[in-house]
Nucleic acid binder design. Sequence first.
DNA 1: GCAAATTATTTCAAGCTTAAAGTTTTATAT
DNA 2: ATATAAAACTTTAAGCTTGAAATAATTTGC
Lengths: 156, 156
Amino acid sequence: MVAGPLPAPSGPGKDRLRLWIRLLRASRTIEADLRERLKKDFNTTLPRFDVMAALYRAPEGMLMSDLSRFLLVSNGNVTGIVDRLVSEGLVARARRNGDRRTSMVRLTEDGVKSFGIIAAAHEGWIGELLGKVSEDDARRLTGMLTSFRSNWEGRE
Amino acid sequence: MVAGPLPAPSGPGKDRLRLWIRLLRASRTIEADLRERLKKDFNTTLPRFDVMAALYRAPEGMLMSDLSRFLLVSNGNVTGIVDRLVSEGLVARARRNGDRRTSMVRLTEDGVKSFGIIAAAHEGWIGELLGKVSEDDARRLTGMLTSFRSNWEGRE
DNA sequence: GCAAATTATTTCAAGCTTAAAGTTTTATAT
DNA sequence: ATATAAAACTTTAAGCTTGAAATAATTTGC
């Protein structure tokens, strides 16, 4: 007598599993919506937006490895995205005098201008997409996710 | 006098933006970890796991379009993943008599066995990764995400 | 000084992903 | 009946993603 594949999941561990599934679905739902809007309204992509957002916060520039660490993606991945942004004139690489392995990556003037416009729209979209989440819940959720992050970073 | 790019974000709408960023980072962090474990321990991938998980819940099989809707990915995407799973003998396609456009996709016997093993490990990983989230927070978070989902599905 | 280890980045192959266009089959409206 | 539309998939091209291997520059340990 074996449990079928379809009993309502319950028991220890199931609460965490359910939480993970909800979390993943929520973020994929929102991500898909943002991706579509970025394409339709600005003919760009989420990875490009992510890179530009990171660089916008660092006017002095970032190393490739900083970018990949910050964005939680692989090194090789960032290379390709930055290559495309460079070819579009939105981002520039500058070799450094000190260490010739590294290059400082930063937004160009065009990049800053372009990102500013897209970011404003983006913030509006998020307000729209998450509008039904009460201010209170938003802050509570954020708090929980922040403490998740702290625990994660402090893990052995 | 323009606000610099680095003031702590604040004001209306910023709470939602911050929530979204936290949500995205949490799910990417966990996703990256799961991806790595799936590769190392079972030489498989998250998309393959996702498809198999969906099929495991539907012993009678699913249509390709059901799969893509459920997983929130495009049609063509599912085609490729299922192709690979079929070539590995974990999944089977069966043409239906009724409608020759469609094919019922289901796990093979091997697929069921294989998924059972991986899913057990997966649940353990999640328990581990989210272990620091209290039972209470887990349930609260799940509740908020569930209501987000309802609002989303009920949007105009 | 110099070999060995480390660090920063790029390249590569395989696979994932999307949006758009194409194919085949079924349903609908004359 | 038969054109037209709709539905279920697949194919395609471009881009994203990873992990591993390759390059090049710097640092470390004798």
